[in-house]
Design a protein around this nucleic acid. Sequence first.
DNA 1: GTTCATTACGGATTCCGTAAGGATG
DNA 2: CATCCTTACGGAATCCGTAATGAAC
Lengths: 323, 323
Amino acid sequence: MTLQQLRYIWEIAQHGLNVSHTAARLYTSQPGISKQLALLEEELGTSIFARSGKHLTEITDAGRQIIAVAGEVLAQVQNIKHIAQEAADETVGALTLGTTHNQARYALPPVVAAFMMRYPTVTLNIHQGTPAQVAEQAAKGIVDVAITTEVTERFSNLVLLPYYEWNRCILVQPGHPLTQQPHITLEDVAACPIVTYVSGFSGRSQMDEAFEQHHLQPQVVLAAADADVIKTYVRLGLGIGIVARMAYDPIGDSDLIALHADHLFQRSLTKIGLRRGMFIRSFVFDFIQLCAPHLTREVVEQALTLREDQKIQFSAQDERSAD
Amino acid sequence: MTLQQLRYIWEIAQHGLNVSHTAARLYTSQPGISKQLALLEEELGTSIFARSGKHLTEITDAGRQIIAVAGEVLAQVQNIKHIAQEAADETVGALTLGTTHNQARYALPPVVAAFMMRYPTVTLNIHQGTPAQVAEQAAKGIVDVAITTEVTERFSNLVLLPYYEWNRCILVQPGHPLTQQPHITLEDVAACPIVTYVSGFSGRSQMDEAFEQHHLQPQVVLAAADADVIKTYVRLGLGIGIVARMAYDPIGDSDLIALHADHLFQRSLTKIGLRRGMFIRSFVFDFIQLCAPHLTREVVEQALTLREDQKIQFSAQDERSAD
DNA sequence: GTTCATTACGGATTCCGTAAGGATG
DNA sequence: CATCCTTACGGAATCCGTAATGAAC
């Protein structure tokens, strides 16, 4: 058994059981991977993948377990490399973030700028994706840190830390009837055509809940993944916008009016996700604390040793932005 | 980085940083290990071991962390092999027990006999050692299952399951004054010269506690690691013996008299220790349940997912023997 | 002077890429 | 017939063991 073989079976599983595709992604030859796979299966005395003829069709039960452990091994190999890098030079390395459009666009720029100033020799990579993708990549160790709001909690090896809480505002064009309203209610909002986030993004599910609790059926005429698109269509008069407060820029968006909506919706919580058991380099701790000052190294370390059922206590932070 | 290299650094650490010795134990050449070590250190850009000239003198800070992770990796490689073996044939494999003299001598024989009857194709290995050695070997994955009483709980990745509770008896020669005593007290016992277990074995510490609580200073004239030695010296008239009840064989030890002592000492608990995160083959579950019927597969699996601070609830079992 | 790790070197093995073969949908 | 995995084969790199070298206690 070699690390190479474990990497190959894990990658094959990640690429839909397509060995050719896997080989291309790993910049190696397809027969090379096939050979190593055959060697491993022979050594273990079990098939990891089920075949129909010469096609890999599915993963065997044993294969599923083996690949899961292989994933752990690969993550620990990464840990070893990170430990060594940290010992060699604390200020050199790479930090890979997984995040969504809205975090990357509104919340992270000042953090990233401060981080780059502090660690000019750390290579920063940002993987943008949907909240589900971001969470999965963090759970698999593809990214070091996940930052997102709508994160499903079904990844048992993903530790979620509270980053900051935020709420929404309502964007309208000047002269819109809602601007005359002294006290806006959810009924008022539901009466207008709405432009907001798609499901699974930026606390959309929490927004839906508010309407449901009041037995209202809002008319969402356009759902987008990011606030820039939403603002564009509000400007076109398609409807009123409901976006994260931080997405409203008083200067750049001065042609729109942002109405207060804290009383209409529950606050959403953006979280920082880390893979359980990962070695965290000092600059990663620093990055996290640049994001959220309350997440000190000690708090994060403690959270990583707790189990899922032992949720961390946190104090909400200032309001910023959303997915 | 290769698995070979990780195994080598781990083994070097296990063998007192003596590469020659390590090579001999692994049936390979010393320069081969040196070479792989040099390659790994070069790849990682950090030294794992500190040298004075050409001698390895100690482990670096980074090396300590790296070796710890390497140990995890090696354990997971074992897990993969076990998963594959289990898938290939549930009844073939090896079970390595780590236990002490007294368990091996008095508690385990019927369990082992039943297990061998049920799984004739499983190779059974028993590593005998001191309680501390046994616990360490289980924590390191050298043995699959540890069975011992005096187990220090400082191995964070060792899960302890309650096996059975037991207490002591007092062994005397016929005609000894204590045999006339209708109700033996701790003071009576402390007045006699005592032959019992050495510290660290078979609940010796719990025995000492009982005397201390009564402010008594027993005169231990001989301390041995096993009951057979103790009985030998009781027969020679060196003193009275205090041994685990199961160590008294009414037939083989008919020349000695066992006096009831349950009221003098607190019961001791013999435990089954498993490395956290290890893959447990079905016959290992069966072995554990042969030991202790209350340790069903479900109970064991649940215990393995709990943390140290969440102790398992258990109901004491019948009394048998001791370390 | 003994123990111990590194360097040097040669043989065997392994690994990987190109090319051809055979099965699937 | 296009896709995909396996087998075949040759060159390159790696690994490992013996022998020699040099440092430490």
